[in-house]
Computed example of a mutant assay.
Amino acid sequence: MVSVQDEAAQLGGSAEEWEVELAEERPRTATAPDGSAGEHLDAVLVLRRR
């Protein structure tokens, strides 16, 4: 799995074009098809064009 920081770097463009305002992983509960409980990590990435 790619980290959210690596994902931001892969978007392309230069650091002069984009400012990373938020880059984090947030847990989310989920239910598998068999009914068992689990947790997923959602990548949250907020960029602002400079």
Score class of each variant (00 low, 15 high):
Glu25His: 01
Ala32Arg: 14
Glu16Leu: 11
Leu45Tyr: 01
Glu7Gly: 13
Ala30Asp: 11
Glu16Gln: 15
Ala30Thr: 14
Arg49Cys: 02
Asp34Met: 04
His40Thr: 08
Glu16Ser: 14
Val2Tyr: 07
Leu22Met: 14
Ala8Ile: 00
Leu47Asp: 06
Leu11His: 08
Arg50Gln: 10
Leu45His: 01
Pro33Glu: 10
Ser3Gln: 04
Met1Asp: 12
Ala23Met: 06
Arg50Glu: 07
Leu47Ser: 06
Gln5Lys: 11
Val20Leu: 10
Arg26Glu: 10
Val2Pro: 13
Ala9Cys: 12
Arg28Trp: 11
Pro33Ser: 08
Val44Asp: 06
Leu47Pro: 06
Ser36Asp: 01
Leu41Gln: 08
Arg28Gln: 15
Val2Thr: 12
Gly13Cys: 01
Glu25Lys: 01
Arg28Tyr: 12
Ala32Val: 02
Glu7Ile: 10
Ala32Asn: 15
Ala23Gly: 06
Val20Cys: 13
Glu21Arg: 13
Glu19Phe: 07
Ala23Ile: 02
Ala9Ser: 15
Ala43Ile: 00
Gly12Tyr: 09
Val20Gly: 09
Ala8Tyr: 05
Ser3Asp: 05
Ala32Trp: 07
Ala8Asn: 07
Ala43Leu: 07
Ala43Pro: 03
Glu17Ala: 14
Thr29Gly: 13
Glu19Cys: 10
Pro27Leu: 04
Asp34Lys: 03
Asp34Ser: 03
Gln10Asp: 13
Ala23Lys: 04
Thr29Asp: 15
Gln10Cys: 10
Leu45Val: 00
Ser36Tyr: 02
Val44Gln: 10
Ala37Trp: 00
Val20Ala: 10
Asp34His: 05
Gly38Asp: 02
Gln5Asp: 10
Gln5Glu: 13
Thr31Gln: 14
Arg26Asp: 05
Glu39Lys: 05
Thr29Cys: 08
Leu22Gly: 07
Leu45Asn: 01
Arg28Thr: 13
